[in-house]
Design a protein around this nucleic acid. Structure first.
Lengths: 158, 158
DNA sequence: GTCGCTGCAAAGTCTTTGCAGAGAG
DNA sequence: CTCTCTGCAAAGACTTTGCAGCGAC
């Protein structure tokens, strides 16, 4: 089985680069660079998880309790980052969305319906094919998402 | 461009069959067959749209005003149908889920980010590949969903 | 200084639940 | 008859918004 990649530990963009992109984005839109916005970006960067607004907020409160960052700011910043395509949101069956940094390599998700574990992967054949389908249907494709649901190796053994 | 199918007007299951499956399901679980449940199933069957609980409720109120079906019953019945895999829910970026009958052929979705239009399609190459990926990662695959986002032909011309 | 940002709390959405009466089996 | 369903309204969960003071530029 070739061409399936699941290793995303090597991020495509280093934090300094990401931060500078973010600052540029803010400047372009006459928005201000605040410590809260930086902390949110940094926490997203340092997390390998797919975070809900609530879990992101908890992480920040634990790590920077002196900031007393409000959940509203987390929501506002996530909306800002999503609008600028710096983060991507996923909505699975459960209620609420999960967010991840878009600066990582593009990938799709395989989700274990037993334990909720998420494995990221990329398959070039599928990526190619998606572009061809969009073209054939007359769409100007901007994005896509794919989730495969099933039971992971660990949960099968239990 | 071969092998992309977008024609789903020919349903795989006729209504009588669907209804009888539903009755069987209810019987098996010692649940009762009520007029509200039938109306919900029928309305889903007769709609080619992907419905939100609210839009489904509106349709039912318009068509069967004498029933005064409550929104809570719609939610409860959709949850029941989804648990039994008779309907599938989709959660796109927007808030809220949309539901569709699972009795139609399996398909994926191409979604216009301008007008919200949804085109259904199937591509065998991708279907095959998904199974192979699940296998390679040790998953026992149960289901998958794929959405391609972009701007549809009509909206490009505007 | 100006004008956007933040935290807080209040207000909105969407969804679920408790309950008493109605109805299917 | 019994036990599940239903509509209603209240409660919950999650998200957004208004506002006054704060802070980046």
């Amino acid at each position: 089985m070739a061409n399936i990649t699941t290793n995303f530990n090597d991020r495509t963009i280093e934090y300094e680069q990401l931060l500078s992109d973010f600052k540029q984005l803010l400047k372009t839109n006459s928005l201000k660079f605040t410590i809260q916005r930086e902390v949110i970006l940094e926490t997203l960067y340092n997390s390998d998880e797919h975070l809900t607004p609530e879990s992101l907020h908890h992480l920040i409160q634990k790590k920077f309790p002196e900031l007393k960052t409000g959940i509203a700011t987390v929501y506002r910043t996530l909306a800002l980052l999503e609008d600028s395509a710096m983060v991507t949101s996923l909505s699975f069956g459960a209620q609420g969305k999960k967010y991840e940094l878009g600066a990582k390599n593009h990938h799709d998700h395989m989700i274990c319906t037993e334990c909720g574990d998420i494995i990221e992967f990329v398959d070039e054949q599928i990526e190619d094919r998606q572009h061809k389908i969009a073209e054939a249907l007359g769409f100007r494709m901007s994005d896509h998402s794919m989730q495969i649901y099933g039971v992971c190796k660990n949960c099968q053994h239990r």
